[in-house]
Computed example of a mutant assay.
Amino acid sequence: MTNLTVPGLLTFTISIVVFFLGAGINNMIPQLKRWNIPQAVTGGLLASVATLLAYRLFDVSISFELGARDMLLLYFFTGLGLNARLSDLLAGGRTLAILLGVTLVYLVIQNIIAIGSVRLLNLPEGLAVFLGSASLMGGHGTTIAWAPVVAERFNLNNALEVGMAVATLGLVLASLVGGPVAGRLIARYKLSGPVEDAPVIGLPDQSGQQGDDLNHVSLLRTILVLNAAILIGLGVWELVDELGIRMPSFVVCLLVAIVLTNTVPRLLPRLQWPTRTRSLSLLSDLSLNIFLSMSLMSMQLWTLGGLGPALVLVLVFQTLATVIYIVFVVFPAMGRTYNAAVISAGFTGVALGATPTAIANMTAVTKTHGAAPIAFIILPLVSAFFLDLANVVAISFMIR
């Protein structure tokens, strides 16, 4: 076996090539674009299949250095925060509360499905943790954090491998399901976004030059504000961590950016602030797409080979349950509006994948059908902050 590690700069470069590969395939296959499959997902999945073939055919294990990926995540979520106007937050308060409620209910349902599936298929009891919210709603980070505890509690030597495999498959399923579900809801209820508003992330697929503020000065100004917000956010994150409050650094940067964007322009009205500018949309889109390309192309699919049909069957159950819950609970609870359809696209990422996957699904929808700024603010707060806290309680209960 030959182990090949791709260095950081080359990884970053390959991820850009992977994105363009996905964009080209989406253009050649209209169904992918119609189903709102992100370009980075298409290219990333193909790249991961290529590394799988290298492993199977040539006995070469390829891994990537992913240091740049964490920074891209900070840029992306800080950009979301800089776009969050207080008026939008106030308007979305009720929506946030409803979304939080339906998400917490589904967390319980997802774990019930996991426990029932493990008993039905006669799988080891401890696997229920990683077939439920720990790996699916929690993702790779939660899986890594809880794997040693689960392994010791249930004497499962392969707890980490199973959890990572489930989290990886969930990420793929969320990427493939979210866009088509939202597209079907939009078509069925004849919904559309406001035509006068540009997407919060990225530029419209058929963007014109109206009020174009996109130039090297605006980009540098936006990067400067992003960097300042990230530096402040990381400082606050360290203080919060010292107090024993555990939350991801990107959530703190998101919250800090929200505070800054609703105070600094009021205190310094002559300062040019990047909220809702094309430059911020472009940088957010770039960060998200390269992050997603890196995440998907670095999946080591050969580690899934030992899962067995039983575990795959459970993931099919979970995916079907997610789609049914979205159609009959999430979408109606959100009001059957265009924003509800966009949130429905993101909910697949919340339930099966990760917050960036949820945002990528919503971005693909809004580029085609119009802006939905409230969705991009409330969903990350639910999935990356409140849900993490609830998941800790749920996992602790399951491993008792």
Rank of each mutant, 00 (worst) to 15 (best):
Leu123Glu: 00
Leu123Gly: 09
Pro124Thr: 13
Pro124Gln: 03
Pro124Met: 10
Glu125Tyr: 12
Glu125Gly: 07
Glu125Gln: 15
Gly126Tyr: 06
Gly126Lys: 07
Leu127Trp: 15
Leu127Arg: 14
Leu127Ile: 15
Ala128Arg: 13
Ala128Phe: 02
Val129Cys: 06
Phe130Ser: 06
Leu131Glu: 06
Leu131Thr: 08
Gly132Ser: 09
Gly132Ile: 05
Ser133Lys: 06
Ser133Tyr: 09
Ala134Lys: 02
Ser135Pro: 02
Ser135His: 13
Leu136Phe: 01
Gly138Lys: 07
Gly138Ile: 05
His140Arg: 11
His140Asn: 13
Gly141Tyr: 10
Thr142Gly: 06
Ile144Trp: 03
Ile144Leu: 14
Trp146Thr: 09
Trp146Met: 09
Trp146Cys: 07
Trp146Ser: 00
Ala147Met: 05
Ala147Lys: 08
Ala147Ile: 14
Pro148Thr: 12
Pro148Arg: 14
Pro148Lys: 15
Val150Ala: 12
Val150Ser: 09
Ala151Asn: 02
Ala151Lys: 06
Arg153Asn: 01
Phe154Val: 04
Asn155Arg: 14
Asn155Cys: 11
Leu156Phe: 00
Asn157Val: 11
Asn157Arg: 15
Asn158Tyr: 07
Asn158Leu: 06
Ala159Tyr: 02
Ala159Gln: 01
Leu160Asp: 05
Leu160Glu: 10
Glu161Tyr: 04
Gly163Gln: 03
Gly163Leu: 03
Met164Trp: 09
Met164Phe: 04
Met164Arg: 08
Ala165Tyr: 05
Ala165Ile: 13
Ala167Phe: 15
Ala167Gly: 10
Thr168Phe: 03
Leu169Asp: 04
Leu171Phe: 13
Val172Ser: 08
Ala174Asp: 00
Ala174Tyr: 00
Ala174Met: 06
Ser175Asn: 00
Ser175Lys: 02
Leu176Asp: 00
Val177Lys: 15
Gly179Arg: 02
Gly179Asn: 14
Pro180Cys: 00
Pro180Met: 02
Pro180Ile: 06
Pro180Asn: 13
Val181Glu: 06
Val181Ser: 11
Ala182Trp: 07
Ala187Cys: 03
Ala187Trp: 01
Ala187Gln: 03
Tyr189Ala: 13
Ser192Asp: 02
Gly193Leu: 08
Pro194Ile: 08
Val195Lys: 13
Glu196Val: 10
Glu196Cys: 10
